Simulated scan of single mutants.
Amino acid sequence: MLHSVSLLDLYHNNEDVVPLILEMLSEVVQRQLCFLNEKRSNQLYEVCLSAIQTYSKHNSGKRVKDASEEEEDRYNDILLVMEMLTNLLSKDFVDFGDKDENIPSPQAVSPIDVVLYGLNTVIPLMTEDLLRFPNLCSQYFKLITFLTEIHPDKFTSLPEELFKSIMVSLEMGLVSYP
């Protein structure tokens, strides 16, 4: 899994490879996370965090000559990242993994930390035009709803800039939703 982040970094300009890597990570999180023990879960959280950091590094402020192509590529990528973030939160209420009772392992990265970092990364990449895609808008609302239901304490204590960004994007999404 860790090599997928290296591949994402290496092939960040290849619009065929990036979505495949993001989709693979999203699928692994969706289908495997609830069965992983604490140690493996932490490793997956770290891989997801690294993938989001790498994606953000290469896509913040990125411009492409064909704006419609850029919008569609960004739509697919952001949708996959948001699906992965939503699925990361599922570990908090569905956990079939073995408990490592005799091995105390400090949790270096928690799923909520990855989700909040991911939101902080994804929100600036979203535009009003992207929120007009029903699937993306719906997935975004699902992620925010899931976050507020599972971790209301974290949502109410968000950094001011992130909270404002979420509120502005929610307003855009509500107005733009078909």
Rank of each mutant, 00 (worst) to 15 (best):
C48I: 09
K154F: 07
H58Q: 03
C34M: 14
F163S: 07
D95N: 15
Q139A: 15
L25M: 08
S169F: 06
D153K: 07
L116Y: 02
V94Q: 07
Q53T: 03
D73G: 02
Y55F: 15
N120P: 06
F141T: 02
V5Q: 03
M82D: 03
D100N: 03
P178R: 13
F155R: 08
H12P: 10
I144Y: 06
G173W: 02
E15M: 09
M126V: 12
I112W: 05
S60V: 13
Y75E: 10
L7D: 05
L88V: 07
H58E: 01
V114A: 09
M167H: 05
P124D: 13
F35T: 03
L88M: 11
S165H: 14
L119V: 08
N120C: 13
S4Y: 08
E46L: 13
S50P: 00
F93W: 15
K39S: 10
N135E: 10
E72N: 14
S56C: 09
D129S: 11
E128C: 05
G97P: 15
Q32F: 05
N135Y: 03
C48F: 10
N76F: 08
P19N: 08
L158E: 00
G118P: 05
T86Q: 06
K65M: 04
V109K: 08
E83T: 00
V94S: 10
T121Y: 02
S50V: 01
E27V: 07
V114M: 12
Y45R: 01
E70Y: 14
Q139N: 13
L89E: 12
S90A: 06
Y45F: 15
G118E: 02
Y140L: 13
C34R: 14
E160R: 01
Q107H: 01
D95C: 15
E69K: 15
I144G: 03
I52L: 15
V115A: 11
Y55A: 03
L80F: 12
L7H: 07
F133P: 01
I78H: 04
V175Y: 04
G97W: 14
V81C: 15
T127M: 03
Y55P: 00
P19W: 11
I166R: 00
M126I: 11
I144M: 06
K57V: 01
M172N: 08
N102R: 04
Y45A: 02
E161I: 13
L79W: 05
K62F: 04
D77I: 09
N87L: 08
S4T: 12
L49V: 02
M24L: 10
Y75V: 03
S26G: 09
I112Q: 11
K142G: 01
D77H: 15
V64P: 09
S60C: 09
E23V: 08
D73L: 07
L116I: 14
Y11F: 15
S110E: 06
V168Y: 07
M1L: 04
E46G: 01
S90F: 02
